[in-house]
């Protein structure tokens, strides 16, 4: 596991200090007060939204949470898929797999809880048909996220960090979404209609669906770990 405090330096480099210090450093600003100001604004917006509807307030609050966590942990779904190939690093890939494990268990508990009470299973809108549209969409999404330096959540996070490049890619993400929505009927008619949505518990039963999925994620974790070690040996 990576060192928690990466900003702390390991002073093992013997270097000519004069080379380093001769460059004039600008005095650093302290942005914490601005941060506290933004926090106050966030809280006020939260209250205003919650007065309008509790749901709006909840979504706002969780959004703040997601953004804060993504930024603090430098969590990046794009890197988790790109880095094994591009740089040989799989530490983010392994972290994403851990998130899959924890969330799978939580989601399955909620879904199963509804199922045994005879209630409709929630969130089944996310179990979507698999067709050529899935394959083609995922493929071009994969290309797009690597060249623009962030997927949807990553792009939003980087806009918050002050990246103009991601602001531009967000604008065109919106244009692309509209374009995709415009063509959606065509894809539906030609491909999605023949696609099948597969909910794993329908195939394997609840228990085995969960076990198979967790074992598969475990296997991917081991592969990711081996991949990194292999890369290191080759230098």
């Amino acid at each position: 596991m990576a060192d928690l405090s990466n900003t702390e330096t390991s002073s093992s480099i013997n270097r000519d200090l004069s080379v380093r210090t001769r460059r004039q450093r600008k005095p650093k600003k302290n942005l914490i007060p601005v941060g506290i100001g933004v926090l106050v604004v966030i809280v006020i917006i939260g209250f205003l939204l919650a007065m309008k509807s509790a749901l709006l307030g909840f979504f706002w609050l969780t959004g703040i949470g997601f953004g804060f966590i993504l930024q603090k942990a430098r969590f990046c779904f794009t890197a988790s898929l790109r880095d094994p190939y591009l740089t040989g690093s799989t530490s983010l890939t392994k972290a994403v797999l851990i998130a899959f494990v924890v969330t799978t268990i939580g989601f399955t508990a909620i879904k199963y809880g509804a199922f045994i009470r005879g209630l409709p299973i929630p969130g089944q809108g996310y179990v979507v048909p698999i067709s050529f549209a899935t394959i083609f969409g995922a493929f071009i999404f994969g290309i797009g996220m690597v060249i623009s330096g962030g997927c949807a959540s990553g792009t939003l996070m980087r806009v918050g960090e002050g990246f103009y490049m991601q602001l531009l890619s967000l604008a065109f993400f919106i244009v692309g979404s509209l374009w995709g929505a415009h063509d959606f009927g065509w894809w539906k008619l030609h491909f999605m209609i023949e696609g099948k949505a597969v909910f794993l518990p329908d195939v394997f039963g609840w228990f085995f669906a969960l076990v198979i999925q967790l074992l598969f994620i475990g296997l991917l974790y081991i592969l990711a770990d081996r991949w990194e070690q292999r890369g290191q040996k080759q230098g």
Binding site: F136, G137, A138, F139, I140, F141, G142, I143, G144, M145, V146, I147, S148, G149, C151, A152, T155, L168, S169, L170, A171, F172, F173, I174, V175, G176, S177, L178, W179, G180, D183
Partner: peptide, 9 residues
């Protein structure tokens, strides 16, 4: 990248 992600998604 933005266009491809938007359409793909």
């Amino acid at each position: 990248g933005g266009l491809m992600m938007g359409y793909g998604a």
